[in-house]
Design a protein around this nucleic acid. Structure first.
Lengths: 203, 203
DNA sequence: TGATATACGGAACATTGTTCCGTTTATCAA
DNA sequence: TTGATAAACGGAACAATGTTCCGTATATCA
């Protein structure tokens, strides 16, 4: 593998020339804007609104993300990455058990903002085919590290598969209704208590 | 409850006057057209296409179905009804075991055409809120009758709950891929064989 | 600092959703 | 059977959104 691995950015630049700085800035602004607009107006929000929120022209949006699904997928990856990155921060700044608990909460927040995407994910658009794998690739090692660390500290039991936990919480998070968020977080906490119940050393 | 129960048709007619015959005809034509277009172009197909397929103007479509979800829900109910009606026909024209087997196949066909609707059903549109209940209300007694009849004839065992079977097949039918249909039907057949395995009298 | 590749912006066009009203037609009473 | 009238029809017109295209602006590099 050569290290021509630039950010996978749609650009007119040929190998010789560097990608322009404003192009990078706008890519970032668009993703941030899309994230905000998707939450407030759904993934079917008008592209004009996203461009406006980002402070760029429509043409710029289309240059980077020719199809809506490109933008949706990019936002999804970006938020997965952000959630994973936070795990590392938490692990470095909190004791293992607390880091785990805090991250599970962070993960439920991630899931909550993805409800609007669920329908899109099942739409059959090939642009989304790779996302489930990406989801697992990124989250499984991430949670595995937190679990192993907490288990090593004797705070939780060690016999729960990371992916099982990811899925269980994912299922808990699909509940709907007024108090969905409270309900989900309560149930996740219950799960976490379950983890603690069988811990090796401390009660 | 008075017996003013006409078909729940949006109409300008006041109680005094009968609903016009062309209105009824067009309602039917629109539902039939929508069913066809939804299969070939998805539930987001342009309303113009549906009106054209039905041979009516756009205004007529909007008069009956002001929102797309109204049309989607009406088509859904209509197809549920058609599938249920076929159960009665099969029960009257085939021996119990064969009627059951044939209907289960018919049911998988119904499910297959509903994949495009799955996303819509989960969209949170209140127009769809009543559909799951309708689904169960109609299908559960329908399948219960077939099962009871077959069990009475000693062709299958009698300890399977109709709703469990409906759900199991529903889950089998969500599989995707090139051979999804074959796979689903194979698995449903396996289920059916399972029903036969514990039959009371005949082996 | 000038030349040039690159990217930007938004007008213009295309597609689809939705409303509105003049025209047509089914119904019903005479 | 026929005329009056309510009811429904059809599609033009308008609105909202998606998409393309190209003249203009600017970052990069020699």
């Amino acid at each position: 593998m050569q290290d021509d691995a630039k950010p996978d950015l749609t650009t007119d630049a040929r190998p010789g020339r560097a990608v322009r700085a404003d192009a990078l800035r706008n890519e970032d602004a668009l993703l941030e804007a899309a994230k905000i607009v998707f939450v407030s107006a759904g993934v079917d929000a008008p592209v004009r609104d996203i461009a406006a929120q980002a402070g760029v022209g429509i043409g710029t949006l289309y240059r980077r993300f020719p199809k809506r699904s490109d933008l949706v997928a990019a936002v999804f990856r970006r938020e997965v990455d952000a959630c994973v990155a936070e795990a590392e921060v938490l692990a470095a700044t909190h004791p293992p058990g607390e880091a785990l608990q805090r991250w599970l909460n962070r993960y439920t927040v991630f899931l909550a903002t993805k409800k609007g995407l669920a329908a899109a994910l099942f739409s059959g658009d090939p642009a989304f085919d790779a996302l489930p794998a990406y989801f697992r690739e990124r989250f499984e090692p991430c949670l595995a590290a937190l679990l192993q660390s907490a288990a090593g500290a004797g705070v939780i039991r060690a016999d729960v598969a990371p992916y099982d936990l990811l899925r269980a919480i994912g299922n808990l998070a699909v509940s709907t209704g007024d108090d969905a968020q409270r309900h989900t977080q309560d149930m996740v906490k219950l799960l976490f208590d379950g983890l603690r119940y069988g811990a090796v050393s401390k009660g």
